[in-house]
Design a protein around this nucleic acid. Sequence first.
DNA 1: TCTCTGCTCAC
DNA 2: CAAGTGAGCAGAGAC
Length: 465
Amino acid sequence: MEYSPLSIKELIGEKGDEQKTMDQVDVQVVAEYAAEDADVTWQLRGLFAPLLKEKNQEKVFHEVECPLIEVLVGMEYEGISLDTEALLQISESLVLDIQTSEKTIYEMAGREFNLNSPKQMGEVLFGEMKLVEKPKKTKTGQFMTNEQVLTSLEKKHPICAEILNYRQASKLKSTYVDALPETLNSRTGRIHTTFHQAVAATGRLASSDPNIQNIPIRTERGREIRKAFIPRVSGGLLLSADYSQIELRIIASISGDPGMKQAFEQGVDIHLVTASKVYGIPLDEVSREQRSKSKMVNFGIVYGISAFGLAQRLNISRTESADLIKAYNSEYPGIHKYMEKTIAFAQEHGYVETLTGRRRYLRDINSRNATVRGAAERNAINSPIQGTAADMIKLAMARIHRDLEKGEFQTRMILQVHDELVFELEPIEKEEITKIVEEGMKNALPMDVPIEVDIGVGANWLEAH
DNA sequence: TCTCTGCTCAC
DNA sequence: CAAGTGAGCAGAGAC
């Protein structure tokens, strides 16, 4: 299927020479494209062709996507400031760490090679050092050297941990620390990402040039990078609001499963409750490991689970993972029924849809090839959930943006990261904004379970969490 | 310069 | 074979 994804910048000129400068953009005009001007709406229709293939999609187009356009224009226009001095410091420390790792790895390997080449890495580890008898290979026949493989071999040879350290440091350096400052707009001094409104199959947004939806947070060094995202004025604040467990709440609501609904109504830790149910023990007897495994099962449910996939993720036997899934299905029968019903619907109609009627077509749902069909079945289960979450936050964005304009607030929405919204906060507006954002997010779509939103304020993006 | 591959970052 | 959605980087090779 060939189509041009809608980027707001397509409406305001191509990137590069043709692009209008930020202050030439008439936000109002762009907003009216969709809302009023039928003459221009056809352009949007062209760009949203996949959405409008069926009559049903008109609703998503008019009620979700069109009101969002001016919101995204505003967010791209505002941008976000970057603490380049902090990044420079991180870069220096990464350089030292990378150099040390490099030397150690060369010594352990007995020779120098290009550490950034997975091909050469595989040759060294498995062709020369023979770390394992039967190394896993990629589909092109190269030795596999990814994180999972190296982690599993950490005990066999210290070079594995050193490579993982090297990989992490060089990833952070090349993708974030060195690249982000290059993207600063010379006129505004800020980062202006491009949000893509119609590229993701599920209805999620995507972000590029730079992608601000994959800024590190998991590791200590990664969090340092997130700290470099700061308010535009010194002494200013960022406000971050994120949905708690949104996808599980959506599957609980859509499926109507009483056990999972009750867990959310009572406000208890959903992974703990799941562990208690699956292992058949009281809440206070659940071990860390049991909770952590149950958490992975909950994730697996959202992604469309297979016993094999879960076993691999959890590093447990296939029988154990099959037992976990079996127990899950009987403890949460509503979820199980929902999954079966969704797949049956997809088989009959060739598509699945979200709560607002956003469709995803699944041509492979009746494929005779089990692998291909399995992938389509997982899409059938995941898309309505991920897509409904996307619809919900898109509706919330339009609503909050409208409230900010109506109240003539100085606070601006600046980023969206799937289940999180980030605002450049005018400090004196904090109380009112908190209320507007919380209510806007909670009430975006009618749900049968409580929707929780965590809100934080801080002097940088990390602290706002 | 473009495309593919392998890898890794996020939700 | 075997967990959903994305984007970006470096290497490697085609053109």
